[in-house]
Design a protein around this nucleic acid. Structure first.
Lengths: 198, 198
DNA sequence: AACAGCCCATAAACAAGGTTAAGAAATAAG
DNA sequence: CTTATTTCTTAACCTTGTTTATGGGCTGTT
């Protein structure tokens, strides 16, 4: 059951009482999403916090030339949302698209605020989640400003081996901020160095 | 009074009761920091959340070649900490150094946890702070992976005009992930384009 | 079986950004 | 006020990454 998975996820942070579990159950909706289906498109408001039960999503922005730039992936037991749009109610500049057929749980503003006000434990849980995500992003920024494409690629492979297997290299290239062509070059150069031709 | 400034800051998020204000007062310590003084050094544990009352700090990592890479600046009414180290109790890989003579307020683990447990409102406030910082970082990541040094520099000037005036360009270069020499070139090229020689 | 649509690889020309070194201009410190 | 120390700039040369174009392989449809 998807909802059990979400509860198990929360309980890793803090134990929940039955009433809190029930409140959660009643305020979350389940959806099945096909590959390539969008759960957020540019100029729409991001109305949900989305918890990925199974499958995989990417969130990205599109530049003036039409190129996509992956800000985040989210697979099982991860959250995805344009939090800025979600809280401000303003139009998003981002897309969230399924890379695989997926099952998700979503909660909207009203219901999340209800949980915050009636069960402060959720303030705590989402504070910890936000802090952890912040730390992750901060490490990524440091990596972006201090290292080469090759280092960023290797770090991605080590840090998210699970994602690296499922994603085409072109998606990873977008995530680490280079073109797919250059990633191909990076891989070739590294292969040559370590296996200098038999 | 520094503490009044911190309270005013919190109240912008959510009103505080007198008891919450007093609890805060009793659990925060005030310090004066000289220019170039460190409040965190590599291999130390980050013991405090630091609120900047006046002055300015930078947080940065140092690479194998000894080059500094600025992850964050923090001026008046901003927070700075290596949250990862703060929560895990593990050694930090980062430095936090005063760029200007500063006045700060600090709260340690024990006291912050006390506030969280006895006054859940602080969970909420710090959740919102963490979410806002997350949004900011996410925009920065998108900028880093999708735009040129020139665009990143212009964005910095527009987004933080206050900081841009106080900081030497060399610090800004480090923040946007380029060398000071290249920033100088970027500025020159832009100047020529807009004033193509009198 | 055949077709379209990615995905991956390659290469050459080009642009963006880094390195080194050296001097000028601006700030901080004595 | 004067000396140190940063900071900013320039320029030549090198490395990293992009663009454009081409071709081959894999997957999913009909």
């Amino acid at each position: 059951m998807p909802i059990e998975q979400l509860i198990a996820y929360f309980v890793k942070y803090i134990p929940l009482k039955d009433i809190e579990k029930n409140e959660l159950k009643n305020r979350v909706i389940e959806k099945r999403i096909k590959r390539r289906q969008f759960i957020l498109q540019e100029n729409d408001v991001c109305k949900y916090y989305t918890f990925v039960v199974s499958g995989c999503f990417k969130m990205y922005g599109v530049d003036d030339k039409g190129a996509e730039h992956n800000i985040q992936f989210a697979a099982e037991n991860d959250w995805i949302a344009d939090i800025g749009s979600f809280h401000s109610g303003k139009a998003s500049r981002l897309y969230i698209e399924a890379i695989e057929p997926s099952v998700i749980l979503q909660i909207d503003q009203t219901n999340l605020v209800y949980l915050y006000h009636n069960h402060p434990k959720f303030d705590r849980i989402f504070r910890v989640i936000a802090e952890n995500k912040f730390i992750e992003l901060q490490n990524r920024v440091l990596l972006n400003i201090s290292s080469t494409a090759d280092e960023r690629y290797q770090t991605f492979l080590n840090q998210y081996p699970n994602l690296a297997n499922r994603l085409p290299d072109t998606q990873i290239a977008s995530y680490i901020g280079i073109t797919p062509e250059f990633l191909s070059k990076v891989r070739r150069i590294r292969a040559k160095k370590q296996l200098p031709l038999t």
